[in-house]
């Protein structure tokens, strides 16, 4: 058993980190009211990251995307293996792709994105879908959904990991009572709990990803990963917000994007209560 990245995976990670970091420009995009980063999408294309095939490799790329909360719908491309967007529970991710993929009556359908009814979310990149028509395609719906959930969990790992890094740096610098905030035990212990949560999210995600990659039954593992991404993800961004004090609520500071994005990771496939109910049915 090997729990570390191999050389190829390191290379993919390094490349993805470089591309996403070089294109971290939220304020610029927000000022131009852009909810999708076209330049980043081109860069992902020219570096070959859009064509990454291995499921574990896809997850590695998405962790890197989560770290910068980059506004591109990469996970939908990976999950659907086409330039499409995926609609789940009546909500779709972005409207950039020419078609939309959705599950109905135990089968996968596609329809043109013109069926999308635009209703913005807090993050401004999701849309409600009203799908009645559509063309049936040959794709296993449970495989599609499992992949989608785990890819979203990978995004969540990146979001959580980076939110905690930003927080650790902040409490290391911020002084009150003549000491860095991070030297108070109440702060240290809360941050340490968040670290344990990040690692639990990472391990449950990779466990599910590995079983999918090996074409093994992954239903339970997918639910477990989703549950951790929902529950621990919220604890982590809650800790990050809290340890930033008032600073975290000011949208001039980057943290709010991580908080909102993490809430979307939790909700996109139905919230933690639904996840638990689904898991219970499997046991």
């Amino acid at each position: 058993m090997n729990f570390t990245y191999d050389d190829t995976q390191h290379a993919i990670r390094d490349l993805a980190r470089r591309v996403f970091t070089e294109h971290e420009r939220h304020k610029e995009l927000e000022a131009a009211a852009q909810t999708f980063d076209d330049e980043l999408w081109s860069a992902l294309g020219s570096t070959g990251l859009l064509e990454v095939d291995g499921f574990l490799d896809q997850c590695i790329v998405l962790i890197e995307q989560g770290r910068t909360v980059a506004p591109v719908a990469l996970w939908t491309r990976y999950a659907t293996r086409r330039d499409a967007t995926l609609a789940v529970d009546g909500v779709a991710a972005d409207d950039r792709a020419p078609e939309i993929v959705f599950v109905r009556d135990g089968a996968v359908f596609v329809a043109p994105t013109s069926v999308l009814e635009a209703r913005r979310t807090t993050a401004g990149a999701e849309y409600v879908v009203d799908v009645s028509g559509g063309t049936k395609i040959a794709m296993d719906p449970s495989d599609l959904l499992d992949r989608a959930v785990v890819l979203r969990c990978a995004l969540g790992v990146g979001i959580a990991e980076r939110a905690l890094e930003i927080t650790a740096a902040y409490v290391g610098e911020r002084k009150q009572f003549e000491r860095p905030l991070g030297s108070f035990q109440a702060v240290q212990q809360r941050a340490a709990n968040a670290y344990i949560d990040v690692e639990a999210m990472r391990l449950t995600m990779f466990q599910a990803a590995w079983r999918i990659d090996q074409a093994l039954d992954a239903r339970r593992e997918v639910s477990i990963a989703q549950f951790w991404a929902s529950e621990a993800g919220q604890r982590i961004v809650g800790t990050a917000q809290h340890l930033h004090g008032g600073m975290g609520s000011d949208i001039d500071y980057p943290l709010h994007r991580y908080t909102v994005a993490m809430k979307e990771i939790e909700l996109a496939f139905g919230g933690s209560t639904q996840t638990l109910a689904r898991m219970g049915a499997l046991l």
């Binding site: 009546g90 909500v91 979310t121 807090t122 999701e126 909700l267 919230g271």
Partner: peptide, 22 residues
């Protein structure tokens, strides 16, 4: 927000719950 499910992401769905959460 959990009760709203995926719709909880939408600002129009329940402004009250969204704002209270944030």
């Amino acid at each position: 927000i959990d009760a709203l499910g995926a719709g909880g992401m939408l600002a129009a769905e329940a402004p009250s719950a969204q704002q209270r959460f944030l």
